[in-house]
Amino acid sequence: MNHAATIFVGVMLTFASAWLGLVFLPYVQLGNIEPAAIEGSTDAYPKPLGGLAARGRGVYIAGGCVYCHTQQIRPEGFGADIERGWGPRRTVARDYMYDRPHLMGTNRTGPDLANIGARQPSSKWHHLHLYNPRITSPGSVMPSFRYLYEKRKITGERSRLALELPEEWKPESGYEIVPTDEALALVAYLQALDHTTPLKEAETP
């Protein structure tokens, strides 16, 4: 057992290096990314989220959306993310440079949302879907987020924001369903989820 000493010291050093590899090197390699200039314009991608969308991100986190929805597109030839129309290209480190915390997710009980803003730009659709997912997507198992909406007695004019619900989902007459500030913020965030801008490091198939 005299070689044990050498072997075990080797083992220890390798173990410590794992930490450097898994935590430190990605940090150095990916931690200092800059936004990329968009060709033919003075704009850069990505941009930090605007005020309302940034608040909506908080609502997304508080609702635990990440447990059923990913925000990452796997590359062509690995899974069918692109073929399903979830995005035109794989997502890369630059797409996430402003994300704190990251919301990449690990489960697709629901579809990927990396580009939901581009795929589903209508705020009307999002409100109906959040109020009750079965309105827009029969058979969905997504929870209803009714608690982000308010049932109000209509006094005077109908609210501009009130949901236009199909007959069977309508509240009793004289009442309307209006989104709370949280619902408005969440929808603004979902509409802002758009990683379709072409990037050099992620070829578009």
């Binding site: 075990f8 220890m12 173990f15 410590a16 930490w19």
Partner: peptide
């Protein structure tokens, strides 16, 4: 700090064991 703490204490533990 955590790399030092981690690697260092592991080596100390091993030296002790031997």
């Amino acid at each position: 700090a955590s790399a030092l703490l981690f690697g260092g204490s592991a080596v100390v533990a091993l030296a002790w064991a031997m």
